[in-house]
Amino acid sequence: MTALLLWSPYVRQLVNWSVTAGSVLLCLFVLHSRFPGMELLGVGPNWPLIWVVAWSVKRSPWQGAFAGLVLGLIQDGLTSPDPTHTLSLALVGMLTALLQKQRYVQEDFISVALIVFGMAVLAETVIAVQFSLQSSHLMAQSTYRSLAEIWGYHQRIALSSAILSSLWAPVLYYPLNRWWQLINNIEQMQT
């Protein structure tokens, strides 16, 4: 903490942003691997979603939506841009910030896990709705899944993804939150 205080504000900003960017990169790496305990019915935790929630909990709705947009674009690149992940993640960021958790609940672990649980279900639903719109648009081609398939699959992955994401959320949330709080405190101390 004292070492951080001695740094010039610009260096500190730079370090702060590289820590943030590094945590995003870490999320993207973990997203590809399936360690023991990270898989349920072939579905792993939704790391970008956990990151967006961790970011938005103590920030403004616009900041949350922006983070969702950025992570959504990156995840689109990693899988397929159609249907897009930006919509679901931006919505998650905005809603998480709108909840104003810190005003009502001081406790951090369980409330964040609960928020992640709800948001994971919401995110999968948004994607499933996009798939449904697609399949109703392109009925002629049988390339796309049928509605029954989409929503059957949605039920399965929404639940397992929500459970796993909420259980793993504190692993990411705790260190990131500590770091951002530290930076915040220092900035307030200096002004």
């Binding site: 942003w17 960017a21 990169l25 993207l28 790496f29 590809h32 691997s33 922006f66 947009l69 950025v70 992570l71 674009l73 990156i74 689109d76 690149g77 990693l78 841009p81």
Partner: peptide, 28 residues
């Protein structure tokens, strides 16, 4: 920084996140 983040994300999307995958491959 916001512009930087957005343009990086857009670049990653357009390049199919090739950079991320390459880094991941090196690390693993």
């Amino acid at each position: 920084l916001a512009c930087l983040a957005l343009s990086t994300a857009w670049l990653l999307r357009q390049t199919q996140s090739a950079v991320v995958l390459e880094l991941y491959q090196r690390l693993t």
